[in-house]
């Protein structure tokens, strides 16, 4: 089965979504990411019991902070999947990519571009 998934995102693999910390999410945005989503196992199916619940909380935390500083909390999202659900994974990626396209580039990325232009000009 070959699935068509968008190519404009990078997958970072973790042993468990419980490994995710708010700082990882923030760093991605600081470096210029336009959006980020976390895909964890189905709720209740975590190997480490609560990993994916923790991840969800951290994603929510990050969303709150991003809202507060004008980056936009809608740019982060948590999904849950079981390992056999390739098509759903593809569907979620498309959904997320479309959503981000709708929102446009992150203000941080734009700011970075402006700054590097300024630096180039100087």
């Amino acid at each position: 089965m070959r699935l068509k998934i968008p190519t404009n995102f990078r997958i970072i693999r973790l042993p468990c979504t419980g490994k995710i910390d708010i700082i990882h999410i923030l760093r991605a945005f600081e470096k210029g990411a336009d959006g980020l989503y976390v895909v964890g196992c189905m709720e209740g199916d975590c190997h480490f019991n609560e990993g994916n619940f923790r991840a969800r909380k951290r994603v929510e935390q990050a969303a709150r902070v991003l809202d507060l500083i004008g980056v936009g909390g809608e740019r982060v999202k948590m999904y849950n999947l079981s390992s056999g659900e390739g098509p759903l994974f593809a569907q979620y990626s498309i959904e997320m990519v479309n959503k981000i396209k709708e929102l446009g580039p992150s203000p941080i990325r734009l700011a970075r571009q402006r700054m590097s232009k300024k630096a180039d000009a100087a």
Partner: peptide
């Protein structure tokens, strides 16, 4: 240390977004 990282990142982004 963790909270320092988060606060620093948040402040950097906030001011960056403000230009």
């Amino acid at each position: 240390k963790k909270e320092v990282e988060v606060l620093a990142s948040v402040l950097r982004m906030y001011f960056m977004a403000q230009g």
